[in-house]
Design a protein around this nucleic acid. Structure first.
Lengths: 198, 198
DNA sequence: TCCGATTTTATGACTAGGTACTAAAAGTAA
DNA sequence: TTACTTTTAGTACCTAGTCATAAAATCGGA
């Protein structure tokens, strides 16, 4: 049976919200009305046409992606750095970093912050983590700000650089790690961004 | 000056990758050639038209939205598990896991896979990583499939469980880690998912 | 049952951003 | 100059629409 205008428009909104990729023709078939009726409905409800809807979805995800990618190159914001000596970064634990149930930060984010910082402190073209020994001292909860402090403490016989990273929430130590870093020994150019493996 | 065909096509690919929302007309203007030339270029490079590109971006974000959250609870797909004994997971290294320049996987993804697996293998309500010693044996590139194998190897004096995780690409060892896991000693209920800190 | 209003459908002209195809013009190397 | 590549132009056609006009169908009320 054909529904009333009101009911049809309500369902139309819902249908499009669930699947923005549906054409007017498909909608017309679904509701057993003409394409023109669907267009009138969209006009009344201020629902843009298919192509505009798709563009909106795409734009949103694209904005997210450009924001996400550069951010992920280094986890945490580096706020101070003395090449080959020390560095500090901060990382705010948000919803996307914690477990839904416990609201405790997933460990790999803390690891990633520390690891990124260990890479960044190395004043070299290429810095790679070779080994790491880490300790999760206490849980970090959503909303907390983690401050990671890296210090270059020495070298191994193989020419690798040892970096100690301690992360704090306030005065409390939450994470601690020792990173053994491989380095290419090619001086880093100004403005060139670091990359790392490991 | 107008570039050679090769160079133009290289830049074209880059331009579209960076901004899929650009029309042929805008591209023609940018490269000082006719719209037809741009279309020939796209044909040769198998780059779909604007609308298709936008649709792809939209589709991806639409799919991601449903997939992203539950997937992140455990990094990698667990394909086999024997509680408190061993477990295996696979993780396909995709674009979002690597550095743009080198196409080498970011270390924290390998760490996350291993760590998730170490947590999953523990047959307990609550499993937390207390310590870990890890080694990145060789780089992992985009497109490679990493198979992580976890084995429970012993216990410490404090009742912590030791889990060894080795990750391979084919026969090659790429990552190796020893995880010391804290456990609540409350038996895990069936169907209940694990959570972990650290 | 007829009236008037609402609702639905049809039709035509136009749009962006293309595809597919043909053909000609321009540039380039031997 | 010839032969080939590359670029440009033009036409017909496509989808998924917009906008405007008009006619047909449906419905409630006196």
């Amino acid at each position: 049976m054909r529904k009333s205008k009101r009911e049809r428009q309500r369902l139309l909104q819902e249908t499009i919200r669930e699947n923005p990729f549906i054409t007017d023709e498909e909608l017309a078939e679904k509701f057993s009305v003409s394409v023109q009726t669907i267009r009138l409905d969209r006009l009344e409800l201020s629902i843009p046409e298919l192509r505009e809807r798709i563009k909106n979805v795409a734009r949103q995800s694209f904005a997210d992606k450009v924001r996400a990618l550069p951010l992920e190159e280094v986890i945490g914001d580096i706020i101070d750095i003395e090449p080959d000596a020390s560095a500090i970064s901060i990382f705010d634990v948000k919803e996307e970093h914690v477990f839904r149930r416990t609201r405790i930060a997933r460990g790999h984010h803390l690891f990633a912050q520390a690891n990124s910082l260990a890479v960044a402190v190395i004043h070299d073209e290429l810095a790679l983590t070779a080994k790491a020994a880490i300790r999760f001292v206490r849980q970090v909860k959503e909303g907390e700000r983690v401050v990671a402090k890296a210090k270059v403490t020495g070298k191994t016989a193989h020419g690798r650089t040892i970096v100690e990273v301690n992360s704090y929430v306030g005065q409390e130590l939450v994470f601690s790690g020792t990173f053994e870093m491989y380095r290419s020994n090619i001086e880093k150019k100004d403005g060139d961004s670091h990359e790392y493996r490991g």
